[in-house]
Simulated assay, not measured.
Amino acid sequence: MRANRLVLGVSAVLAVVPVLFLVSLSLRGVDDIQHGGWLPARVRWDNWPSAFDTVPLARMLTNSWLIALGATVLTALIATPTAYFTARAGRSGQRLYSVLLAAYCAPPVVAVLPLYFLLKSVGLTNSVVGLALVNGLANVPVAVWLLDGFVRRVPKDLEEAAWVDGATTTGAMVRIVLPLVVPGLVAASLVCFFLAYNEFLFAVSFSQSPASQALTVGLSLFQGDRTVQFGQQAAASLVAIVPVYVLAVAAQRLLIGGLSQGAVK
């Protein structure tokens, strides 16, 4: 018991210390930061309003949430029937499962140019909708990988009984399988939300307009040619991570419980 508490305590400290250090950086000037140390020699509150003046943080934060939410909904809509197919379709399902995981293992940079021209052809560059679409499709393999185990845990006898009663394959999936995999769907959706929220490569490649840029791009704008506004960047980073931290803490039981259920055979 004591060993478990010690491990949890160390883990908590390791998780909290970087955030506290960000708080310290957000209250320090550039010279103070470059001189090192953990605490500010003189507290500077002006980094916070200056961060909002340097880049449109509020707009970018809103964009990040809209992109992540839209991407998560799209991922869930595609991944749920796909995971059902990979779990129930025998060899065909296994082939699709392998193809999805293999595609996800490829470096995302190889898809930037093709995706850019595809989005440009339909007028979705510099668009929150375009970024949500790209992120939603990119996270489908992750969601399928997480949901496949949940679907396999649902007894086929339940579906067969529904078929005997006249239900179609789609009807059995929606009425029988889907309610039983809700914990896994919630956990997979949370994971995909965090992935879409933190994504940078697509965000910086497909959007050059501040009106549609994500907050991950905004954080990179504090780096100038000769100096980096570390204090402002730290303040902006806290603006970015605090809402997600709150969501993660509020949904931790759903996330951990869902992933744990999927891991049990």
Rank of each mutant, 00 (worst) to 15 (best):
G130W: 01
L131Y: 02
A132M: 08
A132I: 11
L133R: 04
N135T: 09
N135H: 15
N135L: 11
N135Y: 15
G136T: 09
L137R: 02
L137P: 00
A138Y: 14
A138H: 07
N139K: 08
V140P: 07
V140Y: 11
V142T: 14
V144D: 02
V144Y: 07
V144N: 03
L146P: 01
D148M: 06
D148E: 15
G149V: 05
R152Y: 09
R152N: 01
R153I: 07
P155T: 02
D157L: 09
A161V: 13
A161S: 15
W163K: 09
W163V: 09
T169Y: 14
T170F: 13
A172S: 15
A172F: 01
A172V: 01
M173L: 14
V174Y: 13
I176D: 01
I176N: 13
L178M: 15
L178Q: 13
L178Y: 14
P179N: 09
L180R: 15
V181D: 06
V182E: 10
P183S: 10
V186F: 09
A187W: 04
L190K: 11
L190Q: 03
V191S: 01
V191Q: 08
V191R: 04
C192N: 09
L195S: 12
A196L: 01
A196Y: 05
Y197M: 01
E199R: 07
F200D: 02
F202P: 04
F202K: 06
A203M: 08
A203C: 12
A203T: 05
V204G: 00
F206V: 05
P210N: 04
P210L: 07
A211P: 00
A211D: 14
S212N: 13
Q213K: 10
Q213C: 11
T216L: 02
G218I: 00
L219M: 08
S220M: 03
L221W: 04
L221A: 06
Q223T: 13
G224W: 00
D225M: 08
D225C: 00
V228L: 06
V228I: 15
Q229E: 11
F230G: 03
G231T: 07
G231N: 08
G231V: 04
Q232A: 09
Q232C: 00
